[in-house]
């Protein structure tokens, strides 16, 4: 059954039940999500930001891993649409009592939420949970696998600045191996016709990644040459002691984004970072604050709009037959 119906032809062309990842989404599905997000950007800048589209809907933010930014962003998104939002941090309670992920899913499912927003430290955990519940599930980050709303907000930020993603040259720099942000961005950017370079020491490049269709560089100057967008990744504190590189000093020397390295990129290249930043580790403080080129705060702003769009579309889909369970 086609998802698009009479009287709602401008609606949903993202017709999946869940949003678990970017891999496998078509350009038109991604565009649909971005277009809807766009409508919320202006609204979020008004004094009255509240709508009632999600009135009566319950959204549970289920976080098995600490997060302030993403959780807050989802919480604001849900509340601005008039939904009831509940935050649950599970890492400190049930898991320690031996409750399994599936137990938690079943328990919450029995409370009839409409959307579960889930973050989990293990890859694939959100998909596993989605198979056990009746509501829509948004992956807010699973292990090193995917973080789809981050890739969407990055794409929205770029699209608003550059008009399109098609043909752009994007460098993603840093801990690719452990980054769900990198994977979601790679899938999205390639789907939308951008070219992607990865720049990192070999210890932080996972094996076989070039087969996704990206180019791998171990030298910042070469990798940043003529790029339109520089996406920096956060270097996780725990990796710093993991023997992946000898010291923060050495890492910053070769892979930290500073002005000399940035000079290789296009003069108007945008600088992005999913936050929170480690200033002086992966990015020089001045570069991060470069008013002309850094769009890091804009990314945060787009995050709320993207999450509003995702919540809205998935709750709409709850009431209609969906094509797949993706």
């Amino acid at each position: 059954m086609p998802a698009m119906q009479d009287g709602s032809s401008d609606r949903v062309s993202y017709s999946h039940r869940h949003l678990l990842g970017i891999e496998g989404l078509s350009p038109s599905e991604i565009t649909a999500l971005l277009d809807r997000s766009e409508t919320y950007v202006e609204q979020n800048r008004q004094t009255d930001k509240k709508k009632s589209l999600l009135r009566g809907r319950t959204i549970i933010n289920l976080f098995f891993e600490n997060s302030t930014r993403t959780r807050t962003s989802f919480e604001l998104a849900g509340k601005r649409l008039g939904g009831d939002v509940i935050n649950m941090s599970v890492s400190t309670s049930s898991i320690k009592k031996g409750e399994t992920l599936i137990d938690t899913a079943m328990t919450l499912n029995a409370m009839h939420p409409d959307v579960l927003v889930v973050r989990h430290p293990n890859s694939g955990a959100v998909k596993l949970l989605s198979e056990k519940v009746n509501c829509a599930v948004i992956n807010a980050g699973d292990g090193s696998h995917e973080h789809p709303t981050q890739a969407l907000l990055d794409a929205l930020t770029i699209r608003r600045r550059r008009g399109t993603l098609q043909g752009l040259l994007v460098a993603i720099c840093g801990d690719i191996a452990h980054s769900r942000v990198a994977r979601s961005n790679i899938h999205l950017l390639l789907a939308m016709g951008a070219r992607v370079r990865l720049i990192a020491p070999a210890t932080l490049i996972p094996s076989g990644i070039e087969r996704l269709g990206v180019e791998v560089f171990h030298d910042m100057a070469a990798g940043l040459k003529d790029v339109d967008i520089v996406m920096m990744l956060r270097l996780q504190q725990e990796r710093m002691q993991g023997g992946f590189f000898p010291s923060v000093r050495e890492y910053f020397n070769f892979f930290g984004l500073d002005y000399p390295k940035l000079a290789n990129a296009k003069a108007d290249a945008l600088i992005m970072h999913p936050g929170p930043m480690n200033r002086g580790v992966e990015i020089d403080a001045e570069v991060a604050d470069d008013f002309g080129r850094s769009v890091i705060r804009e990314q945060v702003e787009m995050g709320v709009a993207v999450r509003m769009a995702c919540l809205e579309i998935l709750t709409e889909n709850l009431d209609r037959p969906v094509e797949t369970n993706l």
Binding site: E23, S123, D142, S144, H145, E146, R183, P206, S207, L212
Partner: peptide, 9 residues
């Protein structure tokens, strides 16, 4: 390999 990398494992 590629599969592990894709799955983030």
């Amino acid at each position: 390999g590629e599969t592990a990398t894709r799955l983030g494992l």
